[in-house]
């Protein structure tokens, strides 16, 4: 699903150049449930932006679903994001003057699906996440957990191949965090690749594969069998 070879990315500000990603290699298969960890400055946000086709890179290869992501115009990038990727953010990023249903339906608006139809689909997704009664509430009238569930519904509505979640539980209490992770796990069970960026070990431990970034390259990959060990290690820490 995702194949990255020798990825380089630097940020240039004035005369200073900050080399963030230094030849990173990464393979993520279809249907994987992955978390990306790393201390601040390790390049996880940069990697997430490149994965999400929000940013370009300087060198290397990035194949998304077999298609090379390189030199896209803004319009092409927008279309790719809309078709392939669902985003979930720490601060939910719902549009404040739209109600839950309209927020969820927004990606379909950019697919030029009729208002009636996309609102119907949005209601369906909200129902699936147990939010149907809140469909006509504004984000300001909902709790954090509800907002994040609306955001998840919005990420799912365009039937993406990949869900990219940037600290999805960062603004939630642990109880709600668990609920959100449960939902993401269900999403993954339906075959959608889920990638979570987090710095919380217990959240990472709920995924099936942990990728630790260190100084712009992959520092450590912990997969299935080792995961139990990792969980134990985290608990003892």
């Amino acid at each position: 699903m995702i194949s990255i070879q020798n990825l380089h990315k630097s940020y240039v500000t004035g005369n200073n150049s900050l080399h963030v990603l230094k030849g990173l290699n990464l393979e993520i298969g279809e249907g994987e449930f992955v978390s990306i960890m790393g201390s601040s400055g390790s390049g996880k946000s940069t990697l997430l932006n490149i994965l999400g086709v929000l940013d370009d890179y300087d060198q290397g290869d990035y194949f998304l679903n077999g298609k090379k992501i390189w030199g896209l115009t803004e319009t092409q990038a927008a279309i790719t994001r809309n078709a392939m990727i669902g985003f979930i953010f720490q601060s939910f990023n719902l549009i404040s003057f739209k109600n839950a249903m309209e927020n969820v339906a927004l990606p379909l608006y950019y697919q030029k699906i009729s208002r009636k139809k996309r609102n119907m689909i949005a209601l369906e997704y909200l129902d699936r996440l147990g939010l149907k009664p809140w469909a006509h509430h504004l984000p300001s009238e909902m709790s954090g957990g509800q907002k994040q569930r609306v955001a998840i519904a919005r990420a799912l509505i365009s039937n993406p191949k990949i869900i990219l979640a940037d600290e999805p539980t960062g603004a939630l209490d642990s109880q709600t965090s668990m609920e959100v992770m449960e939902i993401l796990k269900n999403v993954n069970d339906q075959g959608i690749t889920v990638i979570i960026v987090t710095h919380e070990h217990d959240i990472a431990a709920m995924t099936k594969k942990i990728i630790r970034l260190k100084d712009g390259i992959i520092g450590e990959v912990i997969t299935n069998g080792d995961l139990q060990l990792y969980r134990d290690r985290v608990k003892s820490e």
């Binding site: 929000l54 803004e74 994001r81 985003f87 990023n93 950019y110 697919q111 919005r154």
Partner: peptide
């Protein structure tokens, strides 16, 4: 920004 992330074209 949100709109663009979820697929709004320029």
């Amino acid at each position: 920004g949100i709109r663009k992330a979820i697929g709004a074209t320029p």
